[in-house]
Simulated assay, not measured.
Amino acid sequence: MRASTGSETGAAGWATGDGRDPSRRRIIFLDVDGTILEHGAHVAPSTAPAVRAARAAGHLVYLSTGRSASDIHPRVAEIGFDGAVTNSGALVVSGDEVVVDRPLSPEATDRMLTAMRSRGIRYFLQTRDGVYASDDMAELMRDYAAALEARAAAGEEVRPEDSLVGLAERTFPRADDADLSRIDKAVFVSDHEEGLEELRADLGDEFLIVPGSMPLPGGSNGEINERDTTKGSAIELLLEHLGLDAADAVAIGDSWNDIEMFQVCGVAVAMGNAHPELKELADFVTTDVLDDGIANAFQRLGLI
């Protein structure tokens, strides 16, 4: 169990369903991959009604994702939200208002690219407007798509997570065409198991490098942000902007880049399919992403 960052009595009582005050407005932050969306294109039928019911009850519901703002799956976007924390906290939008916009500095981007290229590591670059692929990453995705197609043609089962949310079939603009003054983060794939640790050694404390939540092929994969650019720090800035208390905030997630938002919000909920380490940090664990995980969490918290 993590240490509470909000009103300890209120957060603990709320998390267990005791002493809840339904009249208080809550703000809920939902991760996307593994929380709303199974790695693929599947959303539990109960998720959209739960989100809409919570909003109709007066609560605020925001996305909080490592994805680019332009890369939210249509089945997620159509649910409807009050805003979004995207690019792992580099961009925050509330309604139509941009609250936070903090891309990497050009110097940091150059250092990150130099480290990945020197190690022969493939990568995506994310901006507020798009996702760009290094040439070798695009080649990897094409090869992976062909392998999936061959497996399906041979009658093998292709699991939902194997589709990589359509990444393999997509065509991305080249990383060389990205505006390097507006890069928010990188997602990388290394052929080596030690790739993540190699980048940590190369980049040091200036960057936050976490294992990736997407089942990308390769020896290791992960995400790179500037050290202080996290979902947690973005949520703190948004709460200040909205005049809301962190004790009234709920974080629901499943992966490594959710740790900081767990630390900030008054109540942290891990999905049933979350990493075991994340479950240890949560106030409670709900069911799996496709087993009504969000709806069950909302019900337990008295949001719907």
Rank of each mutant, 00 (worst) to 15 (best):
G19I: 04
S23R: 03
R24T: 00
R24E: 03
R25W: 02
L30H: 02
V32H: 00
D33N: 04
G34R: 01
I36Q: 02
H39P: 10
A41C: 07
A41D: 11
A41R: 11
A41Q: 08
H42T: 11
V43T: 05
A44S: 06
A44V: 01
P45F: 03
S46H: 01
S46Q: 02
T47F: 05
P49L: 03
P49M: 14
A50P: 10
V51T: 02
V51S: 07
R52Y: 04
A53H: 11
R55T: 08
L60S: 05
V61T: 09
V61Y: 10
Y62S: 13
S64Q: 06
S68A: 13
S68Y: 08
S68L: 11
A69Q: 08
A69K: 06
A69C: 14
S70A: 15
D71A: 12
I72S: 06
I72E: 06
P74H: 04
R75L: 13
V76E: 04
V76W: 07
V76D: 03
A77S: 05
I79S: 09
D82P: 07
G83C: 08
A84P: 06
A84R: 07
S88T: 12
A90D: 07
L91A: 12
V92W: 13
V93M: 04
G95S: 11
D96F: 08
V100M: 05
V100W: 01
D101K: 07
L104H: 05
P106H: 02
P106L: 05
P106F: 00
E107N: 02
E107H: 02
E107M: 09
A108I: 01
D110V: 03
D110G: 14
M112W: 11
M112V: 10
A115P: 04
A115C: 09
M116S: 03
R119H: 08
G120P: 09
Y123F: 13
Y123R: 03
L125M: 13
Q126W: 14
T127L: 04
T127H: 03
D129R: 11
D129Q: 12
Y132P: 14
Y132I: 14
D135M: 15
M137D: 11
E139R: 15
E139H: 13
L140D: 15
M141W: 11
R142A: 15
D143W: 13
Y144D: 12
Y144G: 10
Y144M: 06
